[in-house]
Structure formats: C-alpha cells, structure tokens
C-alpha cells in the first residue's frame, strides 16, 4: 500500500469578495490545482516540476494541511486526511514535515540552532535536551558547537542543514521539500541533496521535492510529474520521461535547460509567450496557445489523461 495516495485533488483560491464578484459578474474564486492524482511509496522520491504559478507549492501546502482542498481525496498511511480536524493535524504533522523554500527566512532569528531543531519536540511535549539537539545536528553533519549559534551566523548551506535537522526531529514518514536548493551555490547544492539521499536510505522516509530545476530532478527522484496551470501534463518514472518526453511542454522544458557545453549551443526556438493566468484559462488544452504542435481541435476540448504503462500524459497528439 502506498504511503500517500492523492486522487483527483482540487484546490481553489478566493480571488475577490462576494460583492465585487457579483457586481463584476465574475466567479469569486478560481481553481489553482485541478484534478491531480499521484501515489508515493515509502523510501521513494517524487519530483513535482513546474514554472511559477503551476500550483506545485499549493499542493505542498495542502498536503501538510495549511490549505484546504476543494475536492478529491488525500490518503496518508491508509487514512483520509483531506477533511482532518485541527486535532488530527496535531498528530499528522508529527508524521510529515516540511522543508521551506527560504533556508534563512524559515528560521526564527531570535532562536538558537538548538532551540530551532528541538522546537518540534517541545511542541509535542517531548524532552528537548541539548543531547538531542547535538544528535540531530550530527545527522546533518553539523558539529555540536553549532547548537549555540543564531541563524544569521550560518551560511546558506548550513541554514539548509538546520532546516533538514528540524524536519527530521520527529522521524517523519513523509518529507516535503519546497525548492530545497534554491539560493544555494552549485558546490553546496550537492551537499544538501546527498544529505537527503542518505537520510532516506537510513530511515526510509518518502520525499516530495518541489522544484523547477530539472537537473536536480533527474538525479534525486524516482518519479516525476510535470505541472502546467494546475494540472499534471506528464507523469512517470524520471528516467523514462527524460529519455522520451511525450508532452510538448515537457519537451520544451527539457530543452529550456541549456547544457553547459558551448558546442551544444542549440538553434532551437525557445517557447514563446508566458504561462497564462489560471483565472483566465485557455479553452481546450491549457498549453495549446504556446504549443508548436497544436492542431485546431486542441483549442476545442480538454485532452484526457492517457496512461501508458507506468507513465501517463495529457496530450491528444503526443510526441
């Protein structure tokens, strides 16, 4: 049985007040995530890839209960959690934890590293001893003297490590990492990713990595899903998708990832236009206005999800 089973998840955001919506004869809210399904097994890593506004962070916030879903189901460890009460969440958040996007900004500047990494223990009424802090720091490869430091005394990479230590404090079953390498130098990115891989090998934690960095996804995930405007456009084993993208957007995204090789300088035409707003979705396929392979009926109807073995895509004329 999968640890996490998400089926037809829908998430809406309120856009304007009731009165304004009525006066303008516009809907009050819009769908930021529409009908997303995926599964994650213990010890596996799933990458959610997409550009800004694709809904990937919204999914993360919903998984951890910071945003209510408007439809579909989320089953965690066999139980439905999309309608969990605040009381249930107290227990659930012991089993899933989050690594936030901004490594320094997510640490309170007034707390020491010791207080920061043991805060989850204190909240759950467990003993927050210095020995426990030192143990957590050693898990992420930081020496004990870091326990007395404040966040401003840490480098970006060290702050990330503290973030990982804190996320691991309660030995979670699921770890959600939102852009775990954003703002880190290339020589340090590897450190954080290697650390996550080590932790996973040791504890069997399942990881959801949210990122726009395809290079990272290729190396650290087993499964990946590419999002566009709140929908999965393609999903499957990472290797297969890199080897042969089926959806034109996936292909464009892979091509927009220039190789650090001047001889491979491509003459391809980059994707034109920008991601439309989820408030005014294009008709038919979300991607058709930017798609070079679009045909007339792409504008007419929304393509269905097509399964092909372990993978699937949402395109009527796949590559």
């Amino acid at each position: 049985m999968s640890l996490l089973e998400v089926t037809d998840l829908r998430i809406r955001y309120v856009r304007q007040g009731r009165l304004k919506a009525a006066l303008r004869r516009e809907p009050r809210d819009f769908e930021a995530v529409c009908g997303v399904s995926f599964q994650l097994d213990p010890g596996q890593t799933l990458g959610l890839v997409g550009e800004s506004g694709s809904g990937k962070s919204t999914i993360a916030r919903t998984l951890i209960g910071l945003k209510k879903s408007s439809g579909g189901s989320i089953r965690f460890d066999g139980a439905e959690i999309s309608d969990a009460s605040a009381r249930d969440w107290g227990r659930l958040r012991r089993e899933m934890s989050m690594m936030w996007q901004d490594p320094v900004g997510s640490l309170s500047p007034r707390l020491t590293v010791k207080a920061l990494v043991t805060e989850p223990l204190r909240i759950n009424g467990m003993k927050a001893s210095r020995a426990e802090a030192v143990r957590l720091l050693s898990l992420v490869g930081l020496p004990p003297e870091f326990a007395n430091r404040y966040p401003h005394q840490l480098s970006g990479g060290q702050a990330r490590r503290v973030g990982v230590a804190r996320a691991l404090a309660l030995d979670p079953k699921l770890l959600i990492a939102d852009e775990p390498t954003a703002g880190l130098d290339m020589s340090v990115q590897g450190e954080v990713l290697n650390l996550l891989a080590e932790v996973q090998a040791r504890s069997g934690v399942a990881i959801v990595i949210i990122t726009h960095n395809l290079n990272l996804v290729r190396h650290v995930t087993d499964q990946m899903a590419i999002m566009y405007l709140g929908r999965f456009v393609e999903q499957g084993p990472t290797e297969q998708i890199f080897a042969q993208p089926r959806h034109p957007y996936t292909k464009a995204l892979l091509e927009a990832n220039p190789e650090p090789d001047p001889e491979a300088r491509q003459d391809y035409v980059p994707l034109s236009g920008e991601v439309p707003s989820p408030v005014n979705r294009p008709t038919g396929c979300d991607f058709h206005p930017r798609c070079v392979h679009a045909r007339p009926d792409c504008a007419a109807r929304v393509p269905d999800w097509t399964e092909e073995g372990a993978r699937g895509h949402r395109c009527m004329y796949p590559l």
Partner: peptide, 14 residues
C-alpha cells in the same frame, strides 16, 4: 553542475 552529469546518480559531487 548536475547538468553535466549524464548518468543519473544519487551521490552528487561537491
């Protein structure tokens, strides 16, 4: 640079 590593790997150089 992970973009230069062609074979998928779980251990990235630093």
């Amino acid at each position: 640079d992970p973009a230069r590593i062609r074979v998928a790997t779980r251990h990235l150089p630093t």
